[in-house]
């Protein structure tokens, strides 16, 4: 009976994952490998293709600032380039904020989560969402680039690297992580359980009542362990390997928040989405 409970928990979380996250790993890998009846994604590999591809992106326009254009053509081009980079960054923020809502809905579906102290629910989400978003981003990535805009666009890693500092440095750690994480070959049902484990981390700073969180996590951990054994019978120590990724994730999030702080200091036109601002304030 206990194993049956753990299996039904895995099933419930997988169903919630499919309901809340629009682009699954199965779909993303089909797009990346060209095994889908949908159109191939539009490829963004330079500034020109970024401008062309912008029409695909749900881009929230930011107001242009009146700056005195210097006479040289190259500086006008460089102004335009800065504007396009910033606009792209803003569309990434909008998508991230939407994704935070999806993660929140997923968290609410974890049995027992809504019975936790409301302050603890907020703390768990605050600390987990960026980790979850990075995990969710991994299936969209390969060593050459990443799907964006719900899989309609493929942006090359080289192009992202070519953006000016610190934009150009922001995605590299995520690619490095993703390439290694994807080698574990988790599927969507494994991912659903792993995300729940991340959300239910009892060691987040400022939690008021750790015990019920740890109890919930322990149950999901048992379910994940059993599920991985059944779903990947030939993959040795997969459970331990998956859990080890949680340490890498924390470092990546801490570096990411640092990048955002640098951006806030250096970019006059930067405004951070209020939800992301709320999450990143006093986070590490």
């Amino acid at each position: 009976p206990e194993a049956a409970d753990l299996r039904s928990l895995a099933k419930l979380l997988y169903e919630s994952y499919l309901k809340n996250f629009p682009l699954t790993k199965a779909k993303a890998r089909a797009i990346l490998s060209g095994k889908t009846s949908d159109n191939a994604p539009f490829v963004i590999h330079d500034m020109k293709s970024l401008l062309e591809g912008e029409q695909f992106i749900n881009c929230r326009q930011i107001p242009r600032q009146d700056h005195h254009r210097r006479p040289s053509v190259s500086s006008v081009q460089s102004d335009l380039q800065r504007e396009v980079e910033l606009r792209f960054f803003h569309s990434c923020q909008s998508r991230s904020a939407e994704a935070v809502s999806e993660v929140t809905e997923f968290a609410k579906s974890i049995p027992g989560f809504l019975n936790l102290d409301l302050n603890d629910q907020v703390t768990l989400l605050k600390y987990a969402v960026i980790e979850v978003l990075i995990i969710m981003m991994s299936p969209l990535m390969n060593k050459d680039g990443t799907l964006i805009s719900y899989g309609q666009i493929f942006m090359t890693r080289e192009f992202l690297k070519s953006l000016r500092k610190p934009f150009g440095e922001m995605m590299e750690p995520k690619f490095e992580f993703s390439v290694k994480f994807n080698m574990l070959e988790l599927d969507d049902s494994d991912m659903a359980l792993f995300l729940a484990v991340i959300i239910l981390s009892g060691d987040r700073p400022g939690l008021l009542n750790v015990k019920p969180i740890e109890d919930l996590q322990e149950n999901v951990l048992h379910s994940l362990e059993l599920h991985l054994k059944m779903n990947h019978p030939d993959s040795l120590h997969l459970f331990a390997k998956v859990l080890q990724k949680m340490t890498d994730l924390r470092q990546i999030v801490s570096d990411h928040v640092h990048f955002i702080h640098v951006l806030k200091e250096s970019e006059i036109n930067m405004c951070l989405h209020p939800l992301l601002q709320e999450i990143m304030k006093d986070l590490y």
């Binding site: 935070v100 939800l275 304030k281």
Partner: peptide, 19 residues
Amino acid sequence: TERHKILHRLLQDSSPADG
């Protein structure tokens, strides 16, 4: 929760599926 008003609201909103 005071400093996390949006997260708080997202948590308290009932999802469309819940009616």
